[in-house]
Simulated assay, not measured.
Amino acid sequence: MEFAIMFQVLEGGVSEPIKWSKDNLTPDNNIIILDEGSSSLFLWYGANQGLVSRRTALRQAESLKGHGFSVGKSIVGRDIRDLKEIDQRKIGRVLETDELNDELQTLLNKKFKPLDDYTVTFELEAEIPSAVKLVPKSQPERKIAPEPVPEPISKPEPIKKVAIPQPKMIHASEYDTVVETPKVAETIEKPIEKSAPVSVQKQTSFPESELALDIQAKIGFVIIGVLDHYDDIWISKKENGGYSVEHMDGKVCEFSISEGMIKFTSDSFSGISTNVKTEIQKKFVELSKFL
């Protein structure tokens, strides 16, 4: 038997199962629908939800996709493979979103049978197969229990290795002068090994201060210019040292730093209108005059 559960993502990064109903898909909600029948996890972003709440919902959905949800002794959704995101704002505008929404609506319009407060099934016979399904799902949990058994076995192995040098210590007592010299050599090697990570820590501390204060200020000027037009933005640093600014519908701009200056390319603002691009650059130039 295949089950389905609906979750609501609350503030603070918590998701809780709710009663199965398509009425929960509102502009003010982020909803996760777990469907074993299609091995899919649908993530509905309400139109009024901001960037932070959407990313929080995405993390919750990815967690459910990886681990499933425990119902009694069984785990629902353990074999989920696909995560399908549906942005309510893009319905009717983006073909891919429309296709995913049609798939979700087909699922929600199916006749279902509730098994408890939030778990439903779309099959007629629910009670007998459910007991059968709970047994195999609990078996993997029993397989996990024996896994810690080999761990204590590995612990006695170093004890055996420690027992090997003990007879060497007995021989060393017969030739005190011979044994003392290697002991001194060992104590000398240890501080040499410790000095290596100290040098690494010094090396890793230098990149933190690579950017001068005026460069950091200029980066902030770009971001301020973007915030004049977009409320929710996502800023990331690329491997090549450049920066990318995005909003929920796509890229806003990209720029790099070269010789102490902010560098834009012809494609830096390809994802937004020319008017907005001009306003952002104008704001950047105005603020840079204060440096």
Results as ranks from 00 to 15, higher is better:
Glu36Trp: 01
Ser39Thr: 04
Leu43Lys: 03
Gln49Met: 12
Gly50Gln: 02
Arg54Trp: 04
Arg54His: 00
Ala61Ile: 08
Glu62His: 05
Ser63Arg: 12
Gly66Asp: 07
Gly68Ala: 08
Ser70Gly: 07
Gly77Ser: 05
Asp79Pro: 02
Ile80Cys: 06
Arg81Ala: 13
Asp82Lys: 12
Lys84Trp: 04
Lys90His: 12
Ile91Trp: 02
Val94Phe: 06
Leu100Asn: 13
Asn101Met: 13
Asp102Gly: 03
Leu104Trp: 08
Thr106Ala: 14
Leu107Lys: 06
Asn109Cys: 00
Lys110Tyr: 06
Leu115Trp: 07
Asp116Cys: 04
Thr121Leu: 01
Thr121Met: 02
Phe122Ala: 03
Ser130Leu: 15
Val132Met: 14
Ser138Trp: 15
Pro140Gln: 00
Lys143Val: 05
Ile144Arg: 09
Pro146Cys: 03
Glu147Leu: 13
Pro148Glu: 00
Val149Ser: 06
Pro150Tyr: 10
Pro150Thr: 15
Pro150Ala: 11
Glu151Thr: 13
Glu151Phe: 12
Ile153Gln: 09
Ser154Arg: 12
Lys155Cys: 02
Lys155Ser: 10
Lys160Ile: 10
Ala163Glu: 13
Pro165Met: 08
Pro165Ala: 02
Pro167His: 07
Pro167Tyr: 00
Met169Glu: 06
His171Lys: 14
Glu174Asn: 01
Tyr175Ala: 07
Asp176Ala: 08
Asp176Leu: 12
Val179Met: 01
